[in-house]
Design a binder for these strands. Structure first.
Lengths: 195, 195
DNA sequence: CTGTCACAGTACCGATCGGTACTGTCAGCC
DNA sequence: GGCTGACAGTACCGATCGGTACTGTGACAG
């Protein structure tokens, strides 16, 4: 099928990476073999091992690229120009609530990846960076809001985000996102001196 | 070694269950084989399969028993007699913060188990019940505090708990528990009409 | 003394895993 | 036309997986 495609190296690599992202997220790193990934990507194992020296490296590349995509998308969807005041921060919760409610969502792929590959310190570092980018985004959206301690507030809001992701995944109900938004609004109000 | 122990059926079962709990939590369900569990428990595979018809059933039994233990321990440590007023609720966060800060803690075993066994609906049900027991505890400790909407507040506090567990696991720092407690106190203050 | 039962130890089964090697076949370039 | 390189397809490797079968042994009951 479509044998005559021009052999575009980076396209093959991207196809393998996209397929791995979907399969690993769906069923977990340990439950999906490299054989299946290559077959589903329409590639051979030789191609897979040309671009990724091992399955562990494929997982790391997948998580790194996935984290990049998420934060680029999140920053774009919550661009400061679209809102002002506390709504600038709450827009983050709106976008995440919508994301968590999508069918097939079952947790943050980065967090799941850490659970899947418990012993890999590089995966742990990717996940730490992922959380810190959340903190950076929250602190940026908090800037200019005259809250007493933006750093602490950002960390509290991060707890709500990660908690909502877990609760939505386990409960199967999607209203945890709305709960998180309401809690975030209350924390914002409480942290603003002019309450 | 200690060959002459009286063959106590339930003791063997409990030994296998305890060993499985530790190994599964440490390295994940897929990374630990039944062979290793039996060997580490000082039992044979025949004994393991006498008490648990399959590895999946062993995982379910382990998670069920673990959930029971956690909630019995949590209810005891946060007994209402030990505090009054808002401190009755915040005591839950104190206990959990101490728990999350223990060396070797890397997430809730129930949540990790759901990630490990994504396709098992029985494990998902165990996890849902686990969360609902958290909600029951929080609502019980909120009783008599004259908050406007105890159900919503309990769900918001649950988000903080699960979020702190995830953030402690990924960040490796333990101050997420303290952040969660501060956020919980702020939400409590905001929800009490006599603010 | 003689069953019976729970048990540890071990060998084994088919399947699947991650990873390697080899073959044949296209496409583009000289 | 001949060369090169990326590619799919396949066979294969050793290891390990979940699960079963078998053997020997010690403790207890009759």
């Amino acid at each position: 099928m479509a044998q005559g495609v021009p052999p575009n190296p980076s396209a093959t690599r991207a196809r393998i990476l996209d397929t791995a992202t979907a399969l690993f997220y769906e069923r977990g790193v340990h439950a999906v073999g490299v054989n299946e990934i290559a077959a589903a990507a329409g590639a051979s194992k030789l191609s897979l091992y040309r671009y990724f020296p091992s399955k562990a490296e494929l997982v790391r590349a997948m998580l790194t690229e996935h984290s990049d995509r998420i934060h680029a998308w999140l920053a774009r969807k919550t661009a400061p120009a679209t809102a002002s005041g506390p709504e600038r921060v709450l827009a983050v919760f709106d976008v995440l609530t919508e994301w968590f409610a999508q069918p097939g969502y079952h947790g943050c792929a980065i967090v799941n990846g850490v659970t899947d590959t418990r012993a890999d310190p590089e995966v742990a570092a990717i996940a730490r960076a992922h959380l810190h980018r959340y903190l950076d985004l929250l602190e940026d959206r908090l800037a200019g809001l005259a809250v007493a301690d933006p750093g602490t507030l950002a960390r509290q809001l991060l707890l709500l985000i990660e908690g909502a992701s877990v609760v939505v995944t386990i409960e199967g109900r999607t209203d945890a996102g709305a709960d998180a938004r309401k809690a975030a609004a209350a924390l914002l109000r409480a942290a603003t001196p002019a309450s």
